[in-house]
Amino acid sequence: MSLIVKNLQARVKDGPVILRGVDLEVPKGEVHAIMGPNGSGKSTLSKVLCGHPDYEVTGGSAQLDGQNLLDMSPDERSRAGLFLAFQYPVEVSGVSNANFLRAALKARMPEGEEPDAVAFYKRLRATMQRLGMDPKMTARAVNEGFSGGEKKRNDVLQMLILEPTCAILDETDSGLDVDALRIVSEGVNSLRAPFRSFLVITHYKRLLDYIAPDVVHIFHRGRIVRTAGPEMADYIEQHGFDFLKEDDA
C-alpha cells in the first residue's frame, strides 16, 4: 500500500492547466524527493492531492492505501493519513496553536471524545522542545506574525503531532537556518517507519543530505519527467535543469 498517482491532470478553476498527467508511486517506508524548476507545478500537485478548492481535477486518479483521494473532502483526506507541510503556511489569527492542534486531534477521535488535556500539553511541549520552539508559541495564534522559519517549524510540529501515514513536505527547508534544517530533518527522520511514506519537494540537496531519499523525481511542465536515485540531486546541484531543454525541443 502507498500513495499511487496515475495520469493526474488538473487546472486552476476557470484558469490554466497545470498538471498534465502526473504518474507517481510512493511505496510505504520510502522517501521520495521531487525537484524541478520554479513554476513547474510541484506545489499544485501537493495541493491537488490534499483537495485545495482552487483546482479542478480533469483526469487521472490518486489513491492512498487503496482509498480514492479524489472522492474525499480535504478533511477526510487528512483523517485518512495524508499531510501537507505547506510551502506557505497560512496565518490564522484568533486561533491558538494549542487549540488548533487539539481540534485536529479531536477530529480523529470518535464523536464526543476529546484528547486528554494533560497528556496533550505534555506531548505538545515535548515535541516543541525537540523542534527548538519557544513554549510560548502554544498560546500564540497559528502562524500569526511567525517568521518564515517559525512557520515551517510549526507545520512540522503539526506533522509530528498528527503522525500521518503519508506526508508531503513542500519546500519545508526553504527559510530554515542551518540548525533548524538539521532539527527539522531529525524530526522528519524520527517519523520514518515501514508503514509511512514521504514526498519531499525541495530545490536543495542539503535537505536530501539529511533526509536520504530513496528516489528523486524531476518535475517539469506539470508532470514527472525523470525518476532516478539520490545521485540525481547531486547532478542537479551541479548542472541545474538545462537538460530539460531537450524535452522541450
Binding site: D75, R77, A103
Partner: peptide, 10 residues
Amino acid sequence: FYLRSRGIGE
C-alpha cells in the same frame, strides 16, 4: 482549507 487540511471538518 488550512484547517480542513489538518482533518477538521468543514
